[in-house]
Amino acid sequence: MADVESGEVLEPQSRHVVYCGVCTMPPEYCEYGGTVKKCQEWLEKNHPDMYIRIWSPEALAAATASLSIEAQKRAAKDAQKKAAKAEAAEKKEADKIAHSIVTIKRIERNKRKYVTSVSGLEAFGYELKKVAKDFGKKFATGSSVTKVPSGGEEIVVQGDVSDEIEEFILEKYKDVPEDNIEFVDDKKAKKAAAAAAGGS
């Protein structure tokens, strides 16, 4: 990636700028992103030459020399605060993922006819609409996102695909751990409800 600096010369081609794979900003701005540690690791691995240019002790010293000591202190404090914040946010996110459960529900619609509902995938950061489309493609059935009365949304797939859908989720959506998938068979509840409705 030596062409990064060539932009100063007037040439018809556009420049290609390297962006940090962690915080998406140009690497020289990583220090303001809050994920400095990770950015450094990433840069060292992927663009060692840039890493040396930006994070070598000489470069850092030159960069901070122009600031007054007081300003330096303030900046350092600010950076620390930001890093802590980013870390906390990440931890929270990881926690959330660890505790979220994907529920696969087989619902009896009519004797021997079923629909499969999947809820909880949104907690892993997937877009339900896209996932629903994928399910539909995979199983060649209708698949849609519907609102649940208790708020939130779930994916409803036509037909009983509960076993296959688990495999598919594990294969395609790697963020979902196997232990976090839960099966529910909604047959009895429906029957009881139907009986209750019939009885009254």
């Binding site: 932009g7 556009s14 420049r15 290609h16 700028v17 140009p26 303001y32 960069a63």
Partner: peptide, 22 residues
Amino acid sequence: VHRFPQAFPTIRIDRGAIRFVL
């Protein structure tokens, strides 16, 4: 802007201001 930096009028800020702008 990163692709064609020479095509836009620029001003520059000092180091201390970067973190506020960002």
